[in-house]
């Protein structure tokens, strides 16, 4: 018997606090696998967000720091500039990156900082009780949009990837999802590529957006939540690589 799949070393052997069917667990595992496959565990520094994934430092066995809400790209900038040999990544949710931290991520991208950003988009503010986030899709019912989000008054969903792809400082922008095993594999490839760019010293910001389920605050079963990403969420947030960067080596 050959072992085909087992828990990777960077992912600590402990239970997570996430709700059943949450996409954070999958994203953590993909980051851990990417770090182990590239062999950069000893020189990687991660930044945990404010949000459900605030305890990410308990699950990833790399040096991690917890920063103020939305300020991860700003802190990462300082860390990368003072330690250029370290691999800096930030793990941010949509409340963190697309709401309070929009200024930070846009300016980090426009300064072409050498960072890797993993952006988890689950279309609600999960930790605080499922309120409307900037990324909530039109018509979606949340705690604060009880008749469904309307464009007039509540605004349109914010498409961070499209926004950043026009900036020359952002070199690699991809939107992926985790709604089935094939998509999880693609997401892993994207996350690994984003790390690889930084390892090889490509100058610019790489961001991978992961459409992730929040079964608890979408009021769905985990299986239905995955289906909803595939059928509804991808209409607003089309999957694919918005900006690619080829390594010349």
């Amino acid at each position: 018997m050959k072992t085909v799949f087992t828990r990777t070393a960077t992912l600590k052997d402990c239970p997570t606090h996430y709700c059943p069917g949450c996409g954070h667990g999958i994203a953590h595992r993909l980051i851990a696998e990417a770090i182990d496959e590239l062999g950069i565990r000893g020189r990687t520094i991660g930044i945990a967000p404010v949000g459900c994934a605030v305890l990410a430092y308990d699950y990833l066995d790399v040096d991690m720091i917890e920063v103020a809400h939305g300020r991860a790209p700003a802190v990462a900038t300082g860390m990368k500039r003072t330690n250029p040999d370290k691999i800096i990544f930030s793990y941010q949710g949509d409340g963190d990156l697309a709401a309070i931290g929009t200024a930070e991520i846009i300016h980090a991208a426009h300064r072409a900082e050498q960072l890797t950003v993993v952006f988890i988009n689950n279309a609600v503010f999960g930790m605080t009780g499922g309120q409307m986030a900037p990324t909530t899709v039109l018509g979606q019912v949340t705690a604060t949009t009880q008749k469904g989000r309307e464009a007039i008054g509540e605004g349109y969903p914010l498409q961070i990837c499209e926004l950043l792809a026009v900036l020359p400082g952002a070199i690699y922008i991809e939107r992926c999802s985790v709604y089935n095993p094939a998509q999880v594999r693609k997401t892993k490839k994207a996350i690994k590529h984003a790390f690889e760019l930084q390892v090889n010293g490509a100058e610019g910001l790489s961001l991978v957006e992961v459409l992730s389920p929040c079964p608890t605050y979408w009021r769905m079963t985990p299986a239905k939540a995955m289906e909803w990403i595939e059928k509804e969420m991808t209409k607003t947030f089309p999957l694919g690589c918005l900006k690619s960067f080829e390594l010349t080596k």
Binding site: K2, T6, T16, G21, G23, G25, I26, P181, V184
Partner: peptide, 21 residues
Amino acid sequence: TGCAMCAIICPEAIIEVHRDN
């Protein structure tokens, strides 16, 4: 069949897959 689909989607990463050679 040891395809590991379950392990790939598992959010808790608690599934271990073995395949027969």
